[in-house]
């Protein structure tokens, strides 16, 4: 007896998602539970030129190819580092563990960093995890809401006595990062077709942001990172500054602080100055 619509769809999906060969997929326990292997040639008609396995195999081949292409677009650095064979193996394992549950392929790679960190036997696992995390961040910032940008007029309108408690609201497409590997430089080298840069561990700090719809990043010194991180997390300007001036081993002068602030405003990292309600 032919399966009903629901079971036919469950069966076909089970066969498409199975990571083995076409014949292994049709004979897998999940597929056989829905359609006995003996029924398969009757369920999928052969054509003049292709048998039933060939025909379902077309869908199976396109499935992995499509998902690999989508992940390669979102993770070009990872694909470049691993090369075609190892990247393909990674994708096959990943989509088997985390098949897409979204209507958009843009969300397919959301758990790839997590998968890399948890999968045993990955060479350079720490570096690849951070590279993947950085590439996922880039994708999210690419799609983030567009924000207005803080203008000189808005800055000029803030009463001098209000700066101490003012909060700087960052644009939506911005993230401050403490990194252990030079993943930004690696991605830039891949993008420009340059030889691979060093991938040795090196603590550094950066802000990643979008300006005029293009993603950018700025390397930061550690004190600059601490200040910007505090500001984007809503710490009032006075308190954020005193933290930087108090703590840390590097001395920071007023001229340096002013230079950072001016650079960040020029780059459009903030959208507004939020003042305490005088009431």
């Amino acid at each position: 007896m032919a399966p009903d619509l629901g079971n036919t769809q469950k069966w076909m999906q089970a066969v498409i998602l199975h990571p083995g060969s076409d014949r292994e997929a049709v004979a897998s326990p999940r597929a056989r539970k829905l359609v006995p292997a003996s029924e398969f040639p009757r369920l999928i008609r052969p054509s003049r030129t292709l048998d039933s396995f060939d025909r379902i195999g077309i869908y199976r081949g396109m499935y992995l190819a499509r998902l690999q292409e989508a992940l390669e677009a979102d993770y070009p650095g990872l694909a470049h580092f691993l090369g075609p064979k190892r990247f393909s193996d990674l994708v096959t394992g990943y989509v088997d563990r985390y098949p897409s549950r979204s209507y958009t392929l843009n969300r397919l790679g959301d758990r790839l960093p997590e998968y890399i960190r948890s999968r045993p036997g990955i060479v350079r696992q720490d570096f690849l995890y951070e590279l993947a995390r950085f590439e996922l961040l880039m994708s999210r910032l690419f799609d983030a809401e567009e924000s207005p940008v803080l203008t000189p007029e808005a800055i000029g309108a803030v009463p001098p006595e209000s700066w101490e408690t003012a909060r700087l609201k960052p644009v939506a497409a911005l993230a401050v990062q403490a990194l252990r590997y030079p993943v930004g430089a690696y991605l830039e080298a891949v993008r420009q077709g340059n030889p691979r840069p060093a991938t040795r561990r090196k603590n550094h700090w950066a802000v990643v942001y979008r300006r005029q719809y293009a993603l950018r990043w700025l390397d930061l010194s550690r004190p600059a990172y601490r200040l910007l991180d505090a500001l984007v997390n809503g710490v009032p300007l006075g308190e954020a500054l005193s933290r930087v001036l108090r703590g840390g081993r590097q001395q920071v002068g007023e001229v340096q602080l002013f230079s950072w602030f001016r650079g960040w405003v020029t780059e459009g990292l903030f959208q507004a100055v939020e003042l305490d309600d005088p009431a």
């Binding site: 619509l5 999906q13 498409i16 869908y59 499935y63 098949p99 897409s100």
Partner: peptide, 24 residues
């Protein structure tokens, strides 16, 4: 159809052309 059981295969998968499929 593009998937079932909450999964999206991201392909335009064929329907069985039956009365049941049509009504549904």
């Amino acid at each position: 159809w593009t998937g079932v059981s909450g999964i999206n295969v991201h392909d335009l998968l064929p329907m069985p052309y039956t009365d049941e499929s049509l009504r549904y």
